[in-house]
Nucleic acid binder design. Structure first.
Length: 109
DNA sequence: TGCGTGACTAGCC
DNA sequence: AGGCTAGCCACGC
């Protein structure tokens, strides 16, 4: 059963499993961990994930491929730079060919 | 203890 | 097709 504490932990586990050069969405993760309605919490969890965990939060974007969380990152374009470094094209803070780079956590399930 | 906010999503107008 | 509203859940004040 576990408590909501695991919710955050599960988010980290899923995000850490995101392959290089791939991105996913909050909803996909939320649904993967069994909380399709708590997509917001996923983003919240990622914000808290900076506890020192190796969470590639930059690989997590919203359903439209928009870098919604980039503003929460240290720099203004850090998130974008990281994604571009992985071969993902970003235009105006939006992932280009998003579905082409989209990685569904259900695939590993 | 209670209201408001937020890295979202889906549905309705 | 595009904009707005509602639902969800945890955390801060």
């Amino acid at each position: 059963m576990r408590d909501n504490h695991d919710f955050f932990k599960r988010v980290y586990e899923v995000v850490k499993q995101i392959p290089y050069g791939k991105v996913t969405t909050y909803g996909a993760i939320a649904r993967k961990i069994g909380a399709p309605k708590s997509a917001r919490m996923v983003g919240y969890a990622l914000n808290a994930s900076f506890n020192g965990e190796d969470i590639p939060a930059h690989r997590v974007v919203n359903r439209k491929g928009l870098l919604t969380g980039k503003h929460h990152f240290q720099g203004t374009n850090l998130m974008q730079q990281l994604l571009e470094s992985e071969g993902i094209q970003i235009k105006d803070h939006v992932v280009q060919d998003f579905k082409d780079h989209f990685w569904d956590p259900c695939e590993i399930d």
